[in-house]
Design a protein around this nucleic acid. Structure first.
Lengths: 118, 118
DNA sequence: GGTACACTTGCACAGTTCTTCAATTGCGAT
DNA sequence: ATCGCAATTGAAGAACTGTGCAAGTGTACC
């Protein structure tokens, strides 16, 4: 029953895999259904080789699959509730950013009513 | 009012912030309620200065707050349904890890213990 | 004051990830 | 066979992240 490959390690790797703007956009596009690379390239501003590198990361992690169809390659989500994950993340993100805006507003008020900073 | 930092950038930063085993463990411990650093240190095998560095990352991102109470510092989730995010992630991980028995077993244990009162 | 403890910060170095370029593979058409 | 297009791979350097140590801040207690 020993822990051989730590669970926290696996979770962290999963989140790290999501931690790139191009990879996020790809996953959101794939959430609407299987998509050829050509379309991903048209939708995301990125060099083809860079997109391929990011697709390779997603493939290696197992969250997407690739299938060749003639001369194009079509990517799809390997399964799972990716959309649900994104929704949960967006909810937390919204709260986090809202809190930050409030702090910024408070900071501006405090500066206006006290001595000038450096 | 809205800052024009691309949304995908913000999402990627959010996930990258989660992409570290120590930070994951901290968030899961905090999901059970506010916790002093001393307890985090006892539960996670890590050097104090390393834990502090990871706590600083979480603080900077805004997902946790720190409050001094005497000589100890107590951390808490800043809000948001972190537990729900973790649940969605676990569901996807389960599918991705299908076939890797050890990790699946650990995921099931984690599910069981999170459903139990302490 | 001084010592002890809890926690944090600065810093240097090791390790990892990102980006880009050039080279390559696979496929369809000529 | 060769051309052109779609997509991938390999490799190198830049950029970023993680770690541990030493030094720092803040609090309590004598």
């Amino acid at each position: 029953m020993g822990v051989q490959v730590p669970l926290y390690q696996a979770k962290a790797e999963f989140f790290r895999m999501l931690g790139h703007p191009v990879r996020i956009r790809v996953l959101e596009l794939l959430a609407d259904g299987p998509t050829p690379v050509r379309e991903l390239l048209a939708a995301i501003e990125v060099e083809p080789s860079n997109l391929s590198q990011q697709l390779a990361v997603l493939r290696r992690s197992g969250i997407v699959t690739a299938a060749r169809d003639g001369s194009t390659v079509v990517y799809a989500l390997a399964g799972g509730d990716v959309a649900e994950l994104m929704r949960a993340a967006r909810r937390i993100l919204t709260e986090m950013l809202a809190g930050r805006e409030e702090l910024l507003a408070e900071l501006r008020e405090a500066e206006a009513s006290s001595a000038m900073p450096r």
